[in-house]
Design a binder for these strands. Structure first.
Lengths: 223, 223
DNA sequence: GTTTAATTCAAACACGTGTTCTAATATAAT
DNA sequence: ATTATATTAGAACACGTGTTTGAATTAAAC
């Protein structure tokens, strides 16, 4: 049948476990579900991976490698204005967070770990998170005074990320507050990204929140 | 309801279930734990409440009533400057979120529901969330131009709340990025509240983030 | 005091979970 | 072909969960 493509049950498990874990998370995903999805015997997980947790770590590792090969972090040319970089960063963030359903399971799984890291493999989650964080800090450094402390930069980064993640994590909350129409009309990823970008730029003294379309303008609206 | 209370095991269960649910959440809290903590027979939960879920709803209802009688939302005098109101709001938020351990279990439980609402009783969670949200929107309205749309106000409110909630929800992430010392020195509730307040005010065109230490932060302004 | 209902208690039940066991089978080396 | 090893299969195990049961006990009513 299959020459040597994807038949070794180990790979089938890895694949199936990926989507099941991505859908349900570590706790709620059962070994039986995974084996059933992989069309593999129940004992196979323990035979090939030792136990459920080791399988999870393995899956996460693969997802991490796959994903960051296929979807590397954006890299701008040095000359790009930092406002543009921030805008891109936020938009990418919102896309990843809110459209993860449509993306391959790797993205979903990593997003899940980023948002609710499992106590199992913190070290691994760090590897997904830290690059994103430093990228953002780098952009923010271009947008803040020279003498800004590292601590303040980090808090600012958390302010940006906090805004983004909120819409993913607290979708239920948002749903109870804004109407269906409002959400359809004004709470789509692009619009949210624009709001967050403008809010942040305004906080950093670049542009103002509501008045002008100021993403790349030079208006020094100070008060 | 019943004039006579004190010991009826029902109350003991309610009390014990409160702290156990607050600590571990609905899923991870076991009926055995609760009954053991209440020093009550295992079957008592089912006898008095039907099942675990009905008990949870009951507990949440009580917590909600208790908490909002004891700790009502802050109400300022009309004359208070809106900057002060925002500062108070954010600080209260951070205290509730980050110091919930020290607060009675009701706060912890409600915070938990606010942050990860259980599918069981969404309607109940709404009752905790909406007042907070409208309070914030009210404050923000004073801080934004008249013509600001309701939608923009709401996004701005989510920007504020997102920043606050981030430190609660993603504590693990923060821990991987900032060092222990940094956290002890610069990431305490008061300092985070100040950053968030200044970030937000700056975004709204009031004050600037890093330069001046103008805003209300240290001044003991109790009302 | 007797009777009746409500409550407590210990034990067991039903079920889902991760894991392990042993025999059967495929795969490869000799 | 024979042997040795690696893998699979299905069943069973061990354990934790919420829930139920039925007898024992208490409290109340008559």
């Amino acid at each position: 049948m299959t020459a040597r493509n994807e038949d070794p049950t180990r790979d089938r498990i890895l694949q199936a476990a990926g989507v099941v874990f991505a859908e349900r998370g570590f706790e709620k995903a059962t070994v039986r579900d995974i084996c059933s999805a992989a069309e593999v015997n129940l004992g196979a997980v323990n035979y090939h991976f030792g136990d459920k947790q080791k399988l999870y770590v393995e899956v996460l590792l693969c997802a991490h490698q796959d994903f960051y090969k296929k979807v590397p972090l954006p890299q701008w040319s040095e000359s790009d204005p930092p406002e543009q970089k921030l805008s891109d960063f936020v938009r990418t963030m919102m896309y990843r967070l809110l459209l993860a359903e449509g993306l391959p399971w790797q993205a979903q799984l990593l997003t899940r770990e980023m948002v609710t890291p499992s106590e199992a493999c913190r070290e691994l989650s760090e590897r997904s998170i830290k690059p994103i964080h430093s990228l953002l800090v780098g952009v923010l450094r271009e947008l803040t005074p020279e003498e800004t402390s590292e601590t303040d930069l980090e808090k600012t980064a958390f302010s940006v990320i906090g805004q983004c993640v909120f819409y993913k994590m607290h979708a239920p909350v948002v749903e109870t507050i804004v109407t269906e129409e409002q959400r359809a009309d004004h709470f789509q990823p692009d619009q949210l990204a624009e709001h967050i970008t403008r809010f942040t730029l305004s906080a950093l003294g670049r542009g103002s929140l509501f008045e002008l379309t100021s993403t790349v303008s030079e208006t020094e609206a100070n008060s």
